Simulated assay, not measured.
Amino acid sequence: MLRTVRRLADGREIVYYDEPGAPPRTAEDTRDLPPVTARSEIRRDPLTGEWVAMAAHRQTRTYKPPADLCPLCPTRPGKPSEIPEPDYQVVVFENRFPSFAEDAAGPGPTVDGSGLVPVEPGRGRCEVVCFTSEHDRSFAELSPRRVRTVLAAWADRTAELSRLAGVEQVFPFENRGEEIGVTLHHPHGQIYAYPFVTPRTERMIEVARAYRAEHGRHVLGDVLAAERASGERVVAAGECWTAFVPPAARWPVQVQLVPHRRVADLAELTEWERADFAEVYLEVLRRCDALYDRPLPYVAGWHQAPVRRDRDLCWLHLELFSVLRAPDKLKYLAGSESGMAVWVNDATPEQIARRLRDTR
Rank of each mutant, 00 (worst) to 15 (best):
R3N: 00
R3M: 02
T4R: 09
V5W: 04
R6Y: 05
L8A: 08
L8D: 12
A9K: 02
V15R: 13
Y16S: 09
Y17V: 02
E19Y: 08
P23D: 11
A27W: 03
E28Q: 13
R31I: 01
P35C: 03
V36A: 11
T37H: 03
T37G: 00
R39E: 11
S40P: 05
I42L: 14
E50F: 06
E50M: 05
A53M: 13
M54Q: 13
R58K: 13
R58Y: 10
R61E: 15
R61I: 12
T62F: 03
K64D: 12
L69K: 08
C73D: 06
P74G: 10
S81R: 14
S81T: 15
E82F: 00
Y88G: 05
F93T: 10
F97M: 10
T110V: 02
V119S: 12
R125D: 02
C126F: 01
E127S: 02
F131G: 04
F139N: 00
F139S: 01
R148Y: 02
T149A: 15
V150M: 06
A153C: 12
T158A: 13
L161Y: 05
R163K: 15
L164F: 09
Q169S: 00
Q169H: 02
V170I: 04
F171K: 00
H185N: 11
H186Y: 08
P187R: 13
P187M: 10
H188T: 11
G189N: 07
F196C: 07
T198S: 10
R200S: 06
E202K: 11
A208M: 04
Y211C: 03
E214Q: 15
V219M: 15
V223T: 14
V223A: 14
G231C: 04
A236N: 02
A237N: 00
F244T: 09
F244R: 11
F244Y: 15
V245A: 09
Q256E: 14
R261Q: 14
R262W: 08
V263E: 10
A264F: 06
A264H: 10
L266G: 04
L269E: 12
E271Q: 14
D276C: 07
A278K: 12
A278G: 06
L282M: 04
V284H: 01
L285D: 00
R294Y: 00
L296N: 11
H303C: 02
H303A: 09
A305I: 11
R309V: 06
P327D: 07
D328H: 12
L330E: 08
A334G: 07
G335R: 08
S336C: 07
E337Y: 02
E337K: 01
S338W: 06
A341M: 10
V342Q: 12
V342L: 13
A347W: 06
P349A: 11
R357E: 05
T359N: 04
R360G: 07
R360M: 01
